[in-house]
Write a protein that binds this DNA or RNA. Structure first.
Lengths: 343, 343
DNA sequence: CTGAAAGCGCTTACAG
DNA sequence: CTGAAAGCGCTTACAG
């Protein structure tokens, strides 16, 4: 049972006929060209409204050689089996989506694991958009450099790596790592573990911060406490269980994401280890769940909504041919109960 | 500093010239038309590969009057201020995205709060896609009925509402509500609260299940314990605090989402109320975080990955002109420690 | 099996 | 200020 939209006109020519003008004039009138006489313009617009006519965007975009679509590529790493289900991705995606819709752009989501982004420029996904936002670099810094010179503008959320040739929006991960580690040192922790895959550029920089802070306070780095944890929660559980059973002593863990931190708290609890009494935990991201864990999670907050906005505004500027600068977003430490023990 | 792709040909005509044939023949060869002589076909394909030529998808789609894009509309409700950041959305989005990419479709994300979906058919977003998946109905059941008859096929994830005219993939929310409530009754709970906005169709059906289960066991429904909680975590906290301070007695809460349940556990803990000793908690969704809360969350699991797959396959069938049936997805109760107290 | 021609629905440089 | 014409890059019915 098909209902047809009533009074609808689908072709610009029909509207031109009704108005007694040419297609050219209709086109100009609807795009508010200053060339067209005001009265003509109003007449055409009224007619368009009356007959429920809207310009066919597909044809328009095709003619104009643009799409008004931005592709967002989530750089999920295969090895780490990181799922989209980390709320961090939703938060940044939300920020991007909101800003795009303000600017009248649509968001094309490419989330499938990208084995080799060099394939992207040839892909339908890439062709269908005016620009691409990469969320994370994965381990494809070099490939991003390659792609940066092509016709489709790109921008990357990630870590500031030397010799990069692409535009970047980054949070200050090194400083974030310092904030977290300094906090743990200041509350008296000595044997601070680090959980995360340091080959991921952003995680690697948080690790740098961690090392810097330990160094500055004269604490030695214990290789046994630097643990490569993939993003998935159940891996964190397994890894931590091994650490506990290994009898390597530790009194704090700096986790490279909140998701890992929440998993760590749960696992420690299962083993009868109290957080924060026995072990202090600090996470990273400040996802909304962080303040609702038990105990609530101390973490490093990145201003993700703002990051999304900057990513969008930067890529749009680039599409308009403007030169854009990199943006560094500050992080801040949010202290909750998972780190500080009070009797 | 622009790098140009080398050896690249961008126009089909160029390739035709190189091969000494017409554009028609090239087009047919590349789309593997049986009309074309095998040798000609191979020659053209080899040439295409050598010169790194790919058909311009925008032009192709425009000519073919399709986009190979499916729009996903997240029906976030304004009143409830539900954010995308509920991991449930990421999970279902992931399932949809994976299946779409298998079928060579792209995913356009329309997540901005949709005040009135009747505007959608006129929107660029709608025009740019071959079909639309709505995640949730919000309170726009009637409007969905309107849209269902238009040219662009739609499918809806949501609750099975009488008189609907659109295709549906639903989980059995009534049964889910029964499972959760029966469990609470069986472990001896008598004063079971319900948290959720029952005007949302899916939540309303979980509430139906809740009432059915109470009825069947001869328990009375206490209006004081039916509480309209919006999706956002901090609202759950406020609402629950009010309930605690109101001195209405309750020994269990059936929360309509895991996010609300996690927030409820945290809030009860803050008030020195023990979960599950004093109050049993059951959630809904089984987000990955659910097994990592403290205590781990008893919840009703919906098979979301599968739901995503069915949604995609249904809409694609519909685009191909096939008639499709509604799909109901079973739910199951996952018992963890937030409900059952063992000394 | 292959090609010339029409056309998808617009926009805009050019001419008036 | 307005219109006729070309063209965005393809695909396919028609003719051969």
């Amino acid at each position: 049972m098909k209902k047809k939209q009533q009074n609808s006109i689908t072709q610009m020519q029909e509207l031109a006929d009704l108005a007694g003008v040419s297609r050219s004039t209709v086109s100009r009138a609807l795009s508010d060209s200053p060339l067209i006489n005001k009265k003509t313009k109003e007449k055409i617009r009224a007619l368009a409204k009356k007959h429920n006519y809207r310009v066919n965007e597909k044809a328009r975009n095709f003619r104009l050689q643009k799409t008004n679509i931005i592709t967002v590529v989530m750089m999920l790493d295969i090895k780490s089996e990181q799922h989209m289900s980390d709320p961090f991705f939703l938060d940044i995606l939300g920020g991007i989506a909101d800003t795009l819709s303000i600017h009248n752009y649509d968001l094309l989501l490419a989330h499938a694991p990208i084995h080799n982004i060099l394939d992207l420029p040839d892909s339908r996904t890439f062709q269908q958009s005016d620009g691409v936002i990469f969320v994370g670099q994965g381990k494809q810094h070099e490939n991003l450099n390659q792609i940066a010179g092509l016709d489709t503008p790109i921008i990357v959320w990630g870590a500031n790596i030397p010799d990069k040739e692409y535009s970047l929006v980054a949070s200050d991960n090194v400083n974030g790592g310092i904030l977290a580690t300094n906090h743990l040192i200041q509350i008296g922790r000595k044997k601070i573990a680090f959980f995360g895959d340091i080959e991921q550029p952003e995680i690697g920089q948080r690790y740098e911060g961690y090392k810097n802070a330990l160094d500055k306070h004269g604490l030695k780095i214990d290789e046994q406490l630097i643990i490569d944890v993939p993003f998935e929660m159940h891996h964190a559980r397994e890894t931590l269980t091994q650490l506990i059973e290994s009898n390597n002593k530790f009194d704090a863990v700096f986790c490279c994401t909140d998701v890992i931190a929440l998993s760590a708290i749960a696992t420690l609890n299962e083993h009868g280890i109290s957080v924060p009494k026995d072990v202090s935990i600090v996470g990273y991201d400040d996802i909304s769940m962080a303040s609702y864990s038990n105990p609530p999670l101390t973490t490093v907050r990145q201003n993700i909504r703002w990051a999304g906005r900057v990513l969008v505004e930067s890529i749009l500027s680039k599409i308009n041919g403007e030169t854009i600068a990199d943006t560094i977003i500050q992080s801040e430490l949010i202290v909750r109960k998972s780190s500080v023990y009070k009797k």
